[in-house]
């Protein structure tokens, strides 16, 4: 399972060949497939706790992460599976983490809301809304201070724009020209409340108030997202950051998997409209076929392969071992090599 290594090892060449486009499609389908399986694990009571589905927002994570190298950093959110997959994570370790198994990315200690994949520069999902805005900005500070080329992308939702932390770190990022891109996934809802009811004025205007170049893009159009991000990443590497992107998107599920009856805040007709008419995967699939980059048969085969990968990974994770009880107090503190505490060391 997970035979296909999907991360783009340290390259972010301009798009232009079918391989790049097909990888973007594959990554979006992998996210959707991962989420469909995660939802089933919840509904069949095989997954501890609950989780927040990324379905519907795939073009955002993929469009952005395909513009990044493995060394570039991202910070993620409670709705973070999409970012994790898009940055290069494997199904097996992700499902193991969701099920609290020892082979999970975090040895089962983080779960859905704290999944981190350092091998691909994912500094972690965060269960505090807006909680990772300082972390992403700090990662950009490291990059600048140590003269590295990395950029950091801070993913957060429209709901997180109500957190004061964002304004504090955005101010410093702008003052110090840090290579950070604030990527606001505006899916129209702050938990169970319409964004219009929690956000006064313009969200973009808030970034602009700090002198930050701000963009708004159709978050259901992976190519538009990717093209914009490629340009901003390149400029951020040259010291022209920070940047802000508002990505207009939609979450197909409720706030979390248990949020089933949601007509009191959102109509079924609205959901149907987004799914039928603005689905990022259907749109991109149509484009690939129309451009002659893939046939319907090739696409179906790819979908089936990803479905099989996910199924195998779920089966593996369900059968995998839980961490030994002895691990409960492991990793509270990181070890430090005692030799560094010697004078002269």
């Amino acid at each position: 399972m997970c035979a296909t290594k999907t991360s783009r090892a340290a390259k972010a060449a301009p798009k232009g060949n079918s391989e790049d486009y097909l990888r973007m499609y594959r990554q979006m389908v992998r996210i959707r497939t991962f989420e469909d399986n995660a939802n089933q694990l919840y509904l069949s009571a095989k997954m501890p706790g609950l989780t927040h589905m990324y379905s519907g927002e795939e073009a955002v994570a993929v469009g952005i992460c395909e513009a990044l190298t493995t060394e570039d950093k991202i910070t993620s959110t409670h709705r973070g599976h999409g970012h994790c997959v898009a940055k290069g994570a494997e199904f097996k370790e992700m499902f193991c983490e969701l099920l609290g198994k020892a082979e999970g990315y975090c040895r089962g200690k983080g779960g859905s809301m704290h999944i981190a994949d350092t091998s691909n520069g994912n500094l972690g999902a965060n269960a505090i809304v807006g909680g990772s805005m300082g972390i992403a900005t700090g990662a950009a500070l490291t990059s600048k201070m140590l003269g590295k080329q990395d950029v950091a992308v801070c993913f957060f939702g429209d709901g997180a724009t109500a957190q004061g932390l964002w304004y504090e770190v955005m101010n410093m990022a702008a003052l110090w020209k840090l290579p950070v891109i604030y990527a606001c996934e505006n899916n129209g809802y702050s938990e169970y409340t319409k964004t219009d009811e929690i956000a006064a004025g313009s969200i973009r205007g808030r970034a602009e108030a700090f002198g930050i170049e701000a963009h708004q893009v159709d978050g259901q159009d992976v190519l538009a997202v990717n093209t914009l991000t490629e340009g901003l990443v390149e400029r951020a590497r040259k010291g022209e950051g920070p940047f802000f992107i508002e990505l207009m998107t939609y979450r197909y599920h409720g706030h979390h998997v248990g949020d089933i009856n949601r007509e009191y805040y959102r109509s079924k007709a609205e959901e149907k409209d987004w799914k039928d008419n603005r689905d990022p995967i259907i749109r991109f699939r149509g484009w690939l076929v129309s451009q002659g980059l893939a046939t319907e048969a090739e696409i179906e085969a790819l979908n089936a392969e990803i479905e099989a990968d996910a199924k195998a990974a779920v089966e593996y994770a369900l059968a995998a071992a839980y961490p030994d009880g002895a691990e409960v107090d492991l990793h509270v503190y990181a070890p430090t090599d005692p030799s560094v505490f010697r004078p002269g060391a």
Partner: peptide, 8 residues
């Protein structure tokens, strides 16, 4: 450090 299973 703990939440990341010791990786961060």
């Amino acid at each position: 450090h703990y939440m990341s299973g010791g990786t961060l």
